[in-house]
């Protein structure tokens, strides 16, 4: 992907140089078939990038799970304690897998849970959902249903008040993958 982008930048520069000097027809003549094809492809691919330029859409490359979780942790070291992730060990249908994130143990220890983040480490996109809680939330326990493309590790991170983080993970074996990939 990075190679492709670099290539298109270089070739685009070439193209604009050529366009900027219309009074030197020699340059057009020296443009051989190969570089012509390359620049054509570059223009096409950058056009495609422009058309799909939504930050959360397909044009952007999906981040790895490690990068996605770092957006929340910002360098902090999470503790593997006081949070549990309840999921089936074997999911027959990856399209609908129940998931329960429970950080009530942290609340029992006097901490305030601000948000719960869920990640699927081996899905096309690692993000699943973020649940923002408030003092009116009563208890930090959320249940939902998610998609899993294949057997993989699911990770939950709880963000506590005072830049503290809790983390837990569980492995789910998926018989039929979801996400329709």
């Amino acid at each position: 992907m990075t190679n492709g982008v670099n290539m298109s930048k270089v070739s685009l520069d070439e193209v604009s140089e050529l366009a900027a000097s219309p009074d030197s027809p020699l340059q057009y003549q020296t443009l051989d078939r190969r570089s012509f094809l390359v620049s054509g492809a570059a223009v096409a691919s950058s056009l495609a990038l422009l058309l799909l330029g939504d930050k959360d859409a397909l044009a952007a490359k999906p981040p790895k799970y490690e990068e996605a979780v770092e957006e929340v942790l910002k360098g902090a070291k999470p503790t593997a304690d006081m949070i549990t992730l309840k999921m089936p060990e074997i999911a027959e249908n990856g399209n609908v897998v129940s998931v329960s994130i429970d950080a009530t143990a942290a609340e029992a220890a006097g901490k305030t849970v601000k948000a719960l983040h869920v990640y699927a480490t081996d899905n096309p996109w690692p993000y699943v959902a973020t649940f923002h809680l408030s003092p009116l939330s009563g208890k930090a326990l959320v249940t939902s249903r998610m998609r899993l493309a294949r057997s993989q590790k699911v990770v939950a991170v709880a963000a506590l008040e005072g830049e503290e983080f809790l983390i837990t993970e569980t492995f789910v074996k998926v018989t039929i993958g979801g996400c329709g990939g």
Binding site: W125, V128, A129, F131, H132, L133, L136, S137, T143, G178
Partner: peptide, 26 residues
């Protein structure tokens, strides 16, 4: 509740069709 958001979910495509949530409120 009375205009104050107490539970907000930001979803991604990995949430199943027909999104279901169970959560708590004091």
């Amino acid at each position: 509740f009375e205009g104050d958001a107490f539970f907000v979910a930001d979803m991604h495509p990995a949430i199943s069709a027909d999104p279901y949530f169970a959560f708590y409120f004091k």
